[in-house]
Design a protein around this nucleic acid. Structure first.
Lengths: 226, 226
DNA sequence: CGACCATTTGATATGGATCAAGCGATGTGG
DNA sequence: CCACATCGCTTGATCCATATCAAATGGTCG
C-alpha cells in the first residue's frame, strides 16, 4: 500500500524514518519549531478535503498538488508546491482541498497547534502566518486572471511561472503529468499538448523530453503571459 | 466631478459630510476603532491598483466591485462587496486591485496603521485580520472553481451566491450591470443574458426587471451550482 | 520483446464569442 | 406631452477556439 495520509503516518511512529529538525526556514524566519520530516510516495495523500487541519506542511524535496474533486468527477488543481513552499495552513478547522505528493517527496510536518500557540505569544509569528495566507491569496488571484485567458496564454503563463521557480530559469523540469497541467489550467491534455508543440514550432521552447522543457525565447513567453 | 478616490477624499476634510463611528462591527468584534463614513457616487474610484494600501474599508450601504484591467484592455472583476463586507485589507504596501463603487455607496474608512498597531498589541485582533484574509482566500478559491464551469453553471452559481447574500434569499436585487456580471464570470454580456433567459424559460427564475430576479426553483439552481 | 501508460496528432463537434440588429426604459428638448 | 436620442439589455446569425472522439507514437518496466 503506497497511499497513506499524514495523520496515519504521524500516528504510526515506526513506519517511516524520521528526524527532528529545526524549522527556522522561510516559514518562520526568527522562530524555532520542530517537526517531523516524512517521505511520501508518488501519488500518496498528504491530507484530504474535509479532514481536520492538524498540521502545517513544508516541501523539503519533491512536489505536491493541491486539488478538489468536483461533483461531476472533474478535478481542479488549485496549486502546485515545490521545495521551500509552505502549504496546508488554514484558519479553518478543516482542509478545504486535498493534497497529494506528485513525485516521491519529503515533507516537513509541524503541528498546527504549535504554530498557533507561538503566534498567540509572538506577534511577529502571527504576522508571518497572516502573510503566508496573503501570499496564497495573491497566487489564487493570479490563477483567476489566468483562467480567463486563451489556451495558448495559459500554457505560456504556466511555463513562465514554473521557469521562475526552477534553479535554472531556462530549464524546466516538470514533476507533473500533462493531466495535472490540464487540471490546473482548466484545459484538456490534448489542448495542453497542442499548445506546447505550437510553442516548440514557434521556437519559444524546446522539448527534449515531455517532462523537460528548455526556454528558448523568454520574451515570446512573457508577451503571451502579458 | 463625480469620481474621487478615498485618499483625496480623506485629505480634503470639508468635501464630504462625515461622522466618527465606532467600528466594532463584524470587522473587529471586540475592538473599538474609529473611522470616517464616506459617500461614493456611482462609478467613483475608492482606490486604484498599485496605490499605497493606507486604509481598510467596510461597506455600510451600496456595493463595490474589485477589479483589474488587463493589458489587452479586458476587465476582470475579482469580487463584489455588499453591506457588511470588509475589503482593501492588504499585508502588502500597495493594492493589487482597484475598487469602485457600483451604486451610490457609503463606506467606512479606517487607517490601516490603526488596525495593524492594534494587532501588534492584541493577538485577538491579529487573529481576526488573518481570518479576514483567509476568508478572501476561500472566496477566491471558489471563484477559481467557478471559472472552469460551463456558462449555465457559472450564472446559476452567481445567482445562488447573490441570493444567499440578500435579506430575502428568493429576491435578488442586482446592483451591477450585465457587463459587471460578465466580467466577474469570465463571459460576455450576450452569454450572461442568454443564460438568464434560459433559466427563466426553465422556470428556475423570474425576471420582473433586468436588475430584479426572483428565485422560483432554488433546487434547480443548486443542482447547476453543484 | 511485449504490455502498459503517457503523450502527441488527427478529425469532427460544439459551446460560447463575435457581429449585428431589435427592443424597452429613461431622459431631454421641442 | 410627445418625438427622439441614448443606454442597457435581449435576441439572432455566424464563426472559431477548444472539447471530444479516435488513433498513432513513444517511453518505461517487467
Amino acid at each position: 500500500m503506497l497511499v497513506r495520509n499524514a495523520t496515519s503516518c504521524l500516528r504510526s511512529e515506526n513506519d517511516y524514518p524520521k528526524q527532528s529538525v529545526s524549522g527556522n526556514t522561510a516559514l518562520f524566519d526568527s522562530v524555532q519549531l520542530t517537526g517531523a520530516v516524512m517521505p511520501f510516495g508518488r501519488g500518496a495523500e498528504i491530507y484530504g478535503e474535509g479532514e481536520p487541519s492538524e498540521y502545517v506542511y513544508k516541501v523539503i524535496s519533491g512536489s505536491v498538488r493541491i486539488y478538489k474533486i468536483l461533483n461531476d468527477g472533474r478535478r481542479q488543481i488549485a496549486a502546485f508546491h515545490l521545495p521551500g513552499d509552505v502549504f496546508g495552513l488554514e484558519t479553518d478547522e478543516t482542509h478545504a482541498f486535498s493534497a497529494e505528493a506528485i513525485s516521491q517527496s519529503t515533507i516537513l510536518v509541524v503541528a498546527r497547534s504549535a504554530v498557533t500557540n507561538l503566534a498567540a505569544k509572538d506577534v511577529a509569528v502571527a504576522r508571518q502566518l497572516w502573510s503566508l495566507t496573503a501570499l496564497e491569496l495573491h497566487k489564487m488571484q493570479d490563477h483567476v486572471l489566468l483562467l480567463i485567458k486563451s489556451a495558448r496564454e495559459r500554457v505560456a503563463s504556466f511555463l513562465v511561472h514554473m521557469a521562475a521557480r526552477m534553479p535554472e530559469a531556462s530549464e524546466i523540469d516538470l514533476p507533473m503529468s500533462r493531466q495535472d497541467i490540464a487540471d490546473y489550467l482548466g484545459l484538456t491534455i490534448e489542448t495542453v499538448s497542442r499548445m506546447l508543440t505550437q510553442l516548440e514550432t514557434n521556437a519559444a521552447i524546446a522539448l527534449p523530453s515531455s517532462r523537460h522543457i528548455v526556454v528558448r525565447n523568454p520574451g515570446q513567453l512573457d508577451r503571451l503571459n502579458s
